[in-house]
């Protein structure tokens, strides 16, 4: 079982105060902490579980500058066997389609049975790259997978998460791209020792030329959609923020609960 996992290093913004940068098309990333995209962490774990069950190897691929090595090494420490980093100034501004296109150029020469990606990323949230990659490679896909039942005679049985707690079971021909939903497994803990052990492992680096792509096929020129500007979402009426000491705030909540009912 040869498995490829596409992962992304993303900024953690849940609790961060984000600032729009000078281009007006992105945010300042300077002060932010980066980590593996949450969905991709589950995808890496799932790949390693499959390797443990069926044998074979796991290759992780990511796009981005040298700092991305950190994310790739994290995946190696989890149990991946090889890591590839795709980097080129020309990739800047790539949309979901073009990201899939770049990934496909790196994947085409490899042998694989399964390609896993996260359902989406925490930053751009396209939810598009995995299935697009499958279409470019001419293979099958299933999006929003929350269970892989098993793999047998060149096919896999997977569950797709639908709305309202419903799931559907599909039977797919391999090779295939599966986009992995959070909660599918319990990603293993990565220790500092574990990362140290893989510190010297080689990470293959490929650029535009190695991927046999022309500059006009990557980045904004190669993309079908272009970010024009970003802004903060308009705040509707918004919440009335309760202020004061802990006690005062608590008293206010009690008053609200008494007024709005619900409490016997």
């Amino acid at each position: 079982m040869e498995i490829i996992v596409c992962i992304k290093r993303v900024p953690e913004t849940a609790d961060a105060d984000i600032v729009i940068d000078r281009t007006g098309r992105d945010i300042e990333k300077g002060g932010l902490v980066f980590d593996i995209n949450e969905w991709d962490n589950y995808a890496v774990e799932e790949a390693i579980l499959l390797k443990e069950k069926y044998g074979g190897s796991v290759t992780v691929i990511s796009m981005g500058p040298e700092e991305v090595n950190e994310t790739l090494r994290r995946a190696l420490a989890m149990g991946a066997d090889q890591a590839i980093r795709l980097t080129d100034p020309a990739f800047e501004g790539s949309d979901g389609y073009t990201i899939a296109r770049v990934l496909s150029q790196a994947i085409k020469p490899l042998s694989y049975d399964l390609i896993l990606t996260g359902v989406q990323t925490e930053d751009d949230g396209y939810g598009q790259v995995g299935p697009t990659l499958a279409e470019i490679l001419g293979i099958r896909h299933a999006a929003v997978v929350n269970q892989i039942e098993g793999i047998e005679s060149g096919r896999t049985r997977v569950h797709r998460e639908l709305e309202g707690g419903l799931e559907e079971i599909l039977d797919l021909e391999l090779p295939a791209v599966l986009t992995i939903q959070t909660g599918i497994n319990e990603p293993r803990y990565v220790s500092i020792m574990g990362i140290r052990k893989v510190a010297k492992k080689e990470i293959k680096v490929l650029g535009l030329r190695e991927l046999a792509m022309k500059p006009e096929e990557a980045g904004e020129p190669g993309s079908l959609t272009v970010v024009e500007m970003v802004s903060f979402p308009p705040v509707g009426e918004g919440a009335q923020i309760l202020e004061g000491t802990m006690d005062e705030i608590s008293d206010k909540v009690v008053t609200i609960l008494k007024e709005k009912g619900g409490v016997a």
Binding site: G125, G127, L162, L224, T225
Partner: peptide
């Protein structure tokens, strides 16, 4: 942009060479 659309739109758009904006 649902479980249905997320499984369908990206591959259809790629096949038709159509620009796709998701979600």
């Amino acid at each position: 942009h649902t479980a249905f659309g997320m499984d369908l739109a990206p591959t259809l758009a790629t096949q038709m060479k159509a620009p796709l904006a998701t979600d």
